[in-house]
Simulated scan of single mutants.
Amino acid sequence: MTTLYYEDLEIPSKFVSTGRTVTDADATMFCMVSGDWNPLHCDNEYAKTTRFGRRVVGGIFGITLLTGMFTRWGVFELSAVAMLSIDHWEFKAPIFIGDTLHVEMQLIGKRLTSKGDFGIVEREFSLINQDEVVVQRGTSPMMIALRPAQAA
């Protein structure tokens, strides 16, 4: 896919990723990187005694996975300036090892910055498992470049 600039964005628009299966290595590596060694995330025997009955991957892993998945689309590869925030994020259901997740991103609004030199695009994200259960969702506005001027 080619990079989209502010002028290229149609509101509303929807993008859907392919699936990605969460592995035991993902869960362990995320514990290592984050330092979050809660037994619910890393101890099989303990996790069996919880309401989930098995290990749950740390919730922030979902946001991390989501950002990697939408980056693969390449639609903002050259035009993204900055992720401005993560808003109203909801952890709706657990992520388990073996879940296959995909991302849906909806572009729901856009506007120019006060100086008019960049755009702001409003994005809604859903992280959805193999059973079509939304496990996480929220919004994340992004600053985006305007289309570069063409040389004469």
Rank of each mutant, 00 (worst) to 15 (best):
T2A: 07
D99I: 09
G98E: 12
S79W: 05
S126K: 09
E90D: 12
V134Y: 10
V103A: 12
G119A: 00
R72G: 06
L127V: 14
F96T: 05
E10T: 15
W37Y: 13
T3D: 05
V103L: 06
A93C: 06
Y46P: 03
T23E: 07
F61S: 04
K14F: 00
K14C: 07
W73L: 05
G116V: 08
R20W: 01
L146P: 15
G19E: 14
R51Y: 02
V33A: 07
W37Q: 01
G109K: 12
G109R: 13
R123D: 02
K14V: 10
D8F: 12
Q106A: 09
G59T: 09
T23V: 04
V134P: 06
G62F: 10
L101F: 10
S114A: 13
M1E: 07
P94V: 13
I63K: 00
R147E: 09
D99Q: 02
T49A: 14
A149Y: 03
D43V: 15
V121D: 03
V135D: 13
Q136H: 15
T50R: 07
W73A: 07
G53S: 06
R111G: 11
E7K: 01
I144A: 09
L107N: 07
L127F: 09
T67L: 11
S85E: 15
E7P: 15
G119D: 09
I86M: 10
Y46T: 12
H102Y: 05
H88I: 14
E45T: 12
T64H: 04
R51C: 11
T64C: 03
S17G: 03
P94W: 15
E10A: 14
A80R: 11
I11P: 07
A151E: 13
F52H: 12
S34F: 08
D131R: 07
P12A: 03
L9N: 06
I97Y: 08
R20N: 12
R123F: 02
S114K: 13
I108E: 01
V56R: 10
L4K: 13
E10G: 14
F15S: 00
I60T: 14
I128K: 00
G59P: 05
F52Q: 10
D99S: 10
A152M: 14
R55C: 11
V133H: 08
F70N: 00
Y6M: 01
M83D: 15
A145G: 11
A25W: 06
L4S: 07
T2R: 02
L107A: 04
K110P: 13
I128C: 08
N129K: 03
